[in-house]
Every structure is written in C-alpha cells, then in structure tokens.
Design a protein around this nucleic acid. Structure first.
Length: 372
DNA sequence: GTGGGTTAGTATTACTCAAG
DNA sequence: CTTGAGTAATACTAACCCAC
C-alpha cells in the first residue's frame, strides 16, 4: 500500500515510461545507473518498485535530458531559461551560452551555431538585427531577439550530452562500469595466436559472435557501444600513433580482444550447449515409446513438449515455458527451421525436425514424477 | 501473469571537416 | 561563408531470460 497522508508523489517503471516516453525496459535500466534515486519500497505480489517521482524527475533531467525534455513539451519555458524581455538583444555567443546552460553542457560554440544559420539548415533563423540596418538601438554585430533565441533553444530535439559534465566529479567514479566487467573470464574456444597480433573491430566482432555461440558476427555498431561503455578497451594501436607497423584503422592486440570476448555474461545457445554437455557420452534412451514418423516432419515447441511429457511419463505436457528453458540451456538444439529462412515449406514459427526433437526427448536422465 | 534484468541491435542526433 | 558527407556517441527498443 502507498503510505497515506503525505504529499509525496510516487512513480514506478511503467509510470516513468509513460511520462518520459520511453519503453519500460529503458526506465528499468535507468534505475541501475549512477546516482538513481533510492528505491522507497516494493508493493504487491509482483514486487512493483516504487520511487519518489520528484527525485526521479530531477535525476532524469540530469542524466537523460532528451527524455526529460520530451516530457516538458508544451509547457511554458520548459527549460527554465532566465526571464527577460522578448525583444532583448542577444549575440551569437550569448545564445550559445544560454543553450549550454539550459542543456547542462558546455556552451554551444559559435562555429556550430554558424552552421545552424546556413540556409540549408535553418535551425537558427537569421539575426533579427544587423549592423547598419538603420534601426535603434544600433548594433555592432548580428543580434537575435530573446524570443527568437528561446524558440531555437527550446526546439524539439534529442540531446547528446558530453562527458565533461561528469568529469567535474572527483575521479574514481568512472571505474564503476569497468568493475562490472571484472568478473571471472570465461573459458571460450578461441583461435590460437600471438598476444600481440593485431585485430580490427570487424575481426573482433566475428570472433565474438562465433566464440559466444551466436552464429553470426557481433556488428561493428554494437562493438562501438561496448567501447563507449568501456567493456571493450580502447584500441591498442591507432593510425598515426607512430608505432610499427603502421595501421590505417584502430587495431587491438589479440590479448586485449580476447579479454573482451571472454567477458562474463550471457552466451548464445551453441556456446552454452558445448559447455553444458560435459557428459555427452551417456547414451540416449532407446526405451521410450514415441510415435513413428518421418525424420524431417516438422514439430512446434508445443508439440515437442506434449510428446516429451507423455514419453517421459509425466502424464501432462512439458510446458512451452519449460521448453524454452531447455532451449536456452542448449539441451534442445536450435530450431531446424525458422520463419523467413527461405526454405520450403514456409513456417510461421520455429520448427524442429522430428529427429532433432526425438534426440532431445531421448536425453539421458530421470523420467517423470521424480521431482520432490 | 507480472515485473525486473540483460544483451544485441538500430535509429537518431550533435558535431566536425574538407572542399567549393 | 556554405555545404554535404562523415563520425562518434547517445538514446532507445526488441527479444529474450529469470524470479516470484
């Protein structure tokens, strides 16, 4: 129950999602970020996380300005800009400073503002006043009315925060994200090679995708994300760093790359399976009664669950949810057919060949009813 | 079923740069 | 001074998984 008798307002991940126009997973993710307000309490059976709405709002303003700003659309003076006469005159430099202040970042440079003035962009309208325009008071450089400038500053936008804002903090905070990656490294199957071999981002992505059992390479874009999160270290070599051999794109030592690839965390099905099957030598059970049928008949997860429950003597079907867990753990191989794989007949959900499914059902181990 | 947590990926943006 | 193309980084989501 919400405590009564206070004027505090409460929020939860769903409410935040609605208010700031983001997905629930996004607001939940925020709660793990540096300095997010403390959890007040949890409520109900599902354990709904409840936070102070005002504290959260202040934090979102600081940390996810774009989302915060969106929630302020339609309000007067959404950015709390200094009051003043609409016809006050502001220079380009002053506009840059006000913008920086409003967005909690360094002043926008005059150079950048000039590019916004270019007719092709028109992000910022031309100056309201120019030297020699014959109006009073005379001006010695282009000037904008406060209202013009404010319309520019409050334009719909997403913002890109620069890191220096955080750099004001005493050092030592930044190491937090690295800590997260500091768990025990995984023992993955990776090609041999000298520690000092040089690898490109793309090559690292290929090795990463393969070793972690995802079947396809991790994209360069994703790796760049990891870089910004400092999960992947900075390149050991960069173009023009003066070392030999010269490189024409950033390169990582094999040892650096492998430390990243072996990071703790979730693995794709293939890699999980190869780690799971310690005792693959145990023979499949041949004593189970299973319907006859062609090896390449196609079965859904639900159908496999039904066969599994029956064959292993549990009376009722293994639930699809349990089947997913088996799949995740690599006990059941990945689907032989998936929607859009271009093969015939087309399927609209993942399907397994009868032979694949039966290999799973005949897995070694106890039969039904033995739990508890 | 509900809600929290994780990962891989895409979309979008602010900003830079070289050349006209 | 303009411009278009390029880049780095952020912001966000889909699709999972897991626990109660």
């Amino acid at each position: 129950m919400m405590p009564a008798g206070t004027d505090r307002t409460y929020t939860s991940f769903d409410k935040m999602a609605e208010r700031y126009g983001v997905d629930r997973t996004t607001s939940a993710k925020w709660s793990h970020e540096e300095g997010f307000p403390d959890l007040l309490f949890t409520e109900g059976q599902g354990g709904l996380h409840v936070y102070d709405a005002e504290d959260v709002d202040a934090w979102v303003r600081d940390h996810h300005f774009g989302s915060w700003f969106r929630s302020r659309q339609g309000k007067d003076n959404p950015l709390d800009l200094p009051k003043g006469g609409p016809r006050d005159l502001l220079s380009l430099r002053q506009i840059g400073e006000l913008e920086g202040q409003a967005l909690n970042r360094p002043p926008t440079s005059i150079t950048t503002l000039r590019t916004y003035l270019s007719p092709s962009k028109r992000v910022l309208p031309p100056a309201d006043r120019t030297p020699g325009d014959g109006l009073q008071p005379t001006v010695s450089e282009p000037m904008w009315f406060r209202e013009t400038a404010y319309t520019y500053i409050c334009r719909p936008r997403r913002t890109r925060r620069t890191t220096p804002v955080e750099a004001k903090q005493p050092s030592g905070r930044k190491s937090a994200p690295k800590q997260r990656a500091a768990g025990a490294l995984l023992d993955l199957d990776l090609p041999d090679g000298a520690d000092t071999d040089l690898l490109t981002l793309q090559e690292i992505g290929e090795l990463d995708g393969k070793a972690r059992g995802r079947g396809k390479a991790t994209t360069v874009g994703t790796l760049k994300n990891y870089q910004s999160q400092e999960l992947l270290a900075k390149a050991d070599r960069t173009p023009g760093d003066g070392q030999e051999p010269a490189v024409d794109e950033p390169m990582w030592f094999r040892s650096t790359a492998y430390r990243f690839i072996r990071r703790p965390g979730r693995l794709g099905a293939a890699a999980r399976a190869s780690r799971e099957i310690v005792d693959a030598s145990e023979p499949l059970r041949e004593d189970l009664k299973l319907p006859k049928g062609a090896d390449n008949d196609l079965l859904t997860l639900q159908q496999i669950g039904e066969l599994d429950g029956k064959a292993r003597g549990r009376g009722k079907a293994t639930t699809v949810s349990s089947m997913r867990t088996y799949l995740y753990n690599g006990l059941l191989a990945e689907a032989d057919r998936t929607p859009g794989d271009g093969q015939e007949p087309a399927v609209d959900e993942p399907m397994w060949f009868r032979s694949t499914a039966y290999r799973f059902i005949r897995r070694p181990g106890q039969l039904g009813g033995s739990r508890r």
